[in-house]
Design a protein around this nucleic acid. Structure first.
Lengths: 219, 219
DNA sequence: AACGTTACTGACTACCCAGTCATTTGGTTG
DNA sequence: CAACCAAATGACTGGGTAGTCAGTAACGTT
């Protein structure tokens, strides 16, 4: 079970190539195990021994592939964060209208959340806090998130310029959208709310559209 | 500086009364120091020695007043959380319309945030995560927050029943409001956004009103 | 002033864990 | 098959800290 990602060394291929492959798979197996364990126990309560056990290897082996606990943590997150960001960027570009672009931003995350709860659990909870406590860890990761938000801001700026939504500060608008997104993720992870995710997503999107819509509502 | 809250024992009063007072002040001085230090360094990176030093006392003394690091942490948060919740509840009751009630909910928190950054920094970041990691700590604290959200849901339910806002699931609506509130708090703490808090608050409220308003917007 | 009581102190203990490294394992090569 | 070597192992170490407790100080009482 633990060796899911391990590529069996092909007998025919000699030396370098298969070695490199094996090392890469081993790295990824460790990262996968790390995500599982960190998601369940948090950074502080996780021992390197736990990660090793989850990967089905000994502690010393972990240190053949990674320099430190912190590095494992960061790489485990980065791997996934890059995926989400890339997918989100692509889907937003594909979308034609501002409504579809905002929906793409949110749907990408909700879908990814279903497939990779572990990643979101770590990111949504712990990592964010570490950033708030001013630790310098994970500059790239922070950038990825900022980029996602910036892209939304861009969508809003364009829509506002075209007069498709009401005039507003695009950064504030993007902040609002990402706040709602975060809430949606948290609720799903907690299974706090019995409302199905899909319904919650539609409600959230509806609120966003209303909040941005061009015509003011009568009081 | 450290002994801010310490009541000097009055010479005339003998025994019990003044003793009890002194003990209470000492407890509060420790909690205050704890909030400062925990807010700056986080739970894991804070030593009891740090708390003791900030309170101007020795480590052993801390353990005369509290049983464990965790207990200090929790009580430090609870003390403030009860205050916020009480004030919020009062101001929501005072308010006449649903708009004013929602505003009261948000303004209470923004005002309290200015006066007690330390508390919010701990709550908004660390504590929330601990809850998400399924730790059973702080049941009362979690309840306080839930109550706040429930109260907003109640306001929405009443307003919806009266036809003052569009029909919606009050819990979802309250979740949305508290998500936006959380984002506002986080942004303020990070000084991430240069937008002044007041402006951010108005924008957020405006979005909420639009999202809840009775008349649908034209697409 | 001598005593008794309570509050305070900080060196100490017992434990925990990230990271190391001497040793073992198992596959490859001549 | 024997020699070799990279990969894996896990007992160990060094640094660190929550919580304790024997000793000291401060203060009120007689």
């Amino acid at each position: 079970m633990q060796y899911d990602d391990l590529v069996v060394t092909s007998p025919g291929i000699k030396g370098r190539a298969s070695r490199a492959d094996a090392a890469k798979s081993r790295r990824q197996a460790i990262l996968k195990a790390a995500r599982t364990v960190f998601a369940r126990q948090g950074y502080a309560n996780t021992l390197i021994d736990d990660v090793a056990a989850a990967a089905g290897i000994a502690k010393g082996t972990v240190y053949l592939y990674f320099a430190s606990k912190e590095q494992i943590y960061l790489e485990a997150l980065l791997e996934r964060a890059r995926e989400v960001e890339a997918r989100s960027r692509a889907r937003i570009l594909e979308a034609a209208t501002w409504q579809e672009k905002i929906r793409a931003y949110m749907e990408t995350r909700v879908e990814y959340l279903n497939a990779h709860q572990d990643f979101f659990r770590i990111y949504a909870t712990e990592f964010r806090n570490m950033c708030m406590q001013g630790k310098a860890i994970g500059a790239e990761l922070q950038d990825l998130v900022r980029q996602g938000e910036q892209q939304v801001a861009q969508v809003l700026a364009v829509a506002a310029a075209k007069g498709e939504i009401r005039p507003l500060d695009p950064d504030l608008g993007a902040a609002m959208i990402s706040d709602l997104m975060r809430g949606l993720v948290d609720r799903t992870l907690l299974a706090f709310r019995r409302t199905p995710v899909a319904e919650d997503l539609e409600f959230t999107l509806d609120c966003v559209y209303r909040a941005l819509a061009k015509e003011a509502n009568p009081a």
